[in-house]
Deep mutational scan, measured.
Amino acid sequence: NARWTTEEQLLAVQAIRKYGRDFQAISDVIGNKSVVQVKNFFVNYRRRFNIDEVLQEWEAEHGK
């Protein structure tokens, strides 16, 4: 399903906090979204969920 429920959106943001840009890991956490759908989520929801800021926090924690 290409549509993202609110629950899936929140799950994705939590997974980004945990896995950074590991699209496969994020896809696995959500369970019903492909890697391509996760990559599209990054692009389409970047502003709404401040994904750049979430990634900066992840990179700071993981030394990337």
Rank of each mutant, 00 (worst) to 15 (best):
V36M: 12
V29K: 04
I51L: 15
V54K: 08
N40C: 11
R3E: 14
V29L: 13
T6V: 13
I30S: 15
S27W: 04
N1T: 15
Q14R: 14
Y19L: 06
N1P: 14
V43N: 05
E7M: 12
G20C: 01
D52P: 09
V54S: 06
R48M: 14
R46I: 07
S34M: 01
I16W: 07
R17T: 07
T5Q: 01
A2Y: 08
I26K: 01
E8W: 03
S34Y: 07
L55W: 04
K64C: 03
E8I: 08
F49Q: 10
D52I: 03
R3P: 08
N32W: 03
H62Y: 10
L10Y: 05
Q37K: 00
I26E: 00
N1Y: 12
Q14M: 09
V36K: 12
S27T: 02
N1I: 14
I26Q: 01
N32G: 09
R46Y: 07
K33D: 03
R48G: 09
R48V: 13
T6H: 14
V13I: 13
V29N: 05
D28V: 06
L10C: 11
Y19V: 03
V38E: 01
D22W: 04
N40Q: 14
I30M: 06
V13L: 14
N1C: 06
F49L: 14
I30G: 00
E7D: 11
V43E: 13
A12G: 09
R47Y: 12
T5K: 06
K18Q: 13
R21A: 12
Q9L: 13
Q56M: 13
A2S: 14
I26A: 02
Q14T: 11
V43Q: 14
V54W: 07
R48K: 15
S27Y: 05
S34W: 08
A2Q: 14
N40H: 14
A12N: 06
Q14D: 14
V38P: 01
K18I: 07
A25M: 15
N1W: 09
R46H: 06
Q9N: 04
E8C: 00
W4S: 00
Q56Y: 06
W58Y: 10
D22G: 02
K18M: 09
E7I: 06
I51M: 09
Q37E: 15
K39W: 01
H62E: 11
E8Y: 03
Q24P: 07
K64R: 11
Y19R: 04
